[in-house]
Computed example of a mutant assay.
Amino acid sequence: MRIEVVEYAHPDARLLVAGVQQEYVERYGEQDAAVVQAGDFEAPNGVFLVGYLERTPVASGAWRRGGPQDGDAEMKRVYVVPDARGRGLARRMLAEVERTAASAGRTRMVLETGLRQPEAIGLYLSAGYHPIAPFGAYRDDPLSRFFAKELG
C-alpha cells in the first residue's frame, strides 16, 4: 500500500470519510458527532493520509493536534474499505499516522473508539495502546473507549 498526505477536501479523502461515516451509521445508528474541520488536518497541526492499492483509495488515517495533555495528537478516521480488510492495511496506516505525528513533535497519540468496533480495539491494544480516562465529545458515552500510546 502506498500512503500519501492529502487535503481533507481531496476527493479520495472525502470518499473514505463517507465510508467510515456509513460504518458508524451501521454500527451505532448515527454518524460521528465529533466536530472535525479541514484545517485540523493541515500541517503543522495535523495530517490526513490516504492509502492506495494501485490507484484505488482503500484506507485512511489522520491525526490532529489536541487531546487531554500537552503534546497529544488525536487519531481520527482510521478506516479500511471492506474489500481490502484482512491484509494488515489498518496496522500499516496506524504506524504511518503515529510516525507523522511523532515527526511533527507530538509526544502521545490518543483516540476514542467504540465497543461496536472490536476489531479496532484489538488493533490498538496489540499496537501498544492502553486505556485512558474519557475525553472529548464522547466522554459520557457508555459505548466509548479511550486509548493512548506514547510516541517516540
Rank of each mutant, 00 (worst) to 15 (best):
M93K: 08
T107I: 10
R106T: 00
V81Y: 02
L115F: 04
S103E: 15
A84G: 06
I132L: 12
M93N: 10
G114K: 03
R91V: 04
A127D: 14
M109D: 04
M75L: 15
A84Q: 12
A133H: 06
H130G: 13
M75G: 13
V110K: 11
E96Q: 12
R77I: 08
A95H: 03
A127E: 15
G136Q: 08
I132M: 14
V81F: 06
S126V: 03
A104K: 01
V78A: 00
L115E: 10
H130M: 14
P82S: 03
M93Y: 08
H130P: 01
L94T: 06
Y79L: 00
F135T: 10
A95V: 08
A133I: 03
K76C: 03
A127T: 11
A127L: 09
R77A: 02
K76H: 03
A102S: 15
G105H: 07
G136L: 07
T100K: 04
R91M: 00
R87Y: 10
V110Q: 09
M93C: 08
T113I: 02
P82F: 05
D83A: 10
R92Q: 14
E96T: 00
R116S: 01
L111C: 11
P131L: 15
E112M: 08
L89E: 08
L123S: 06
G88Q: 10
Y129T: 01
I121S: 06
I132T: 12
V97M: 10
L89F: 14
V78G: 01
R87C: 09
R106G: 08
Y124T: 04
I132H: 05
G128K: 12
G122H: 06
P82M: 06
E96G: 02
E112D: 12
V78F: 00
A84K: 06
L111N: 08
R87T: 10
D83P: 01
L115K: 12
A137Q: 15
A84W: 05
A90G: 13
R108I: 15
A104C: 13
A127S: 15
Y124G: 04
F135C: 04
T113V: 07
Y129C: 02
A127K: 07
M75C: 11
G122Q: 04
M93E: 11
R92A: 13
L125A: 15
G128I: 07
R85A: 07
A137V: 13
G128C: 06
G88C: 07
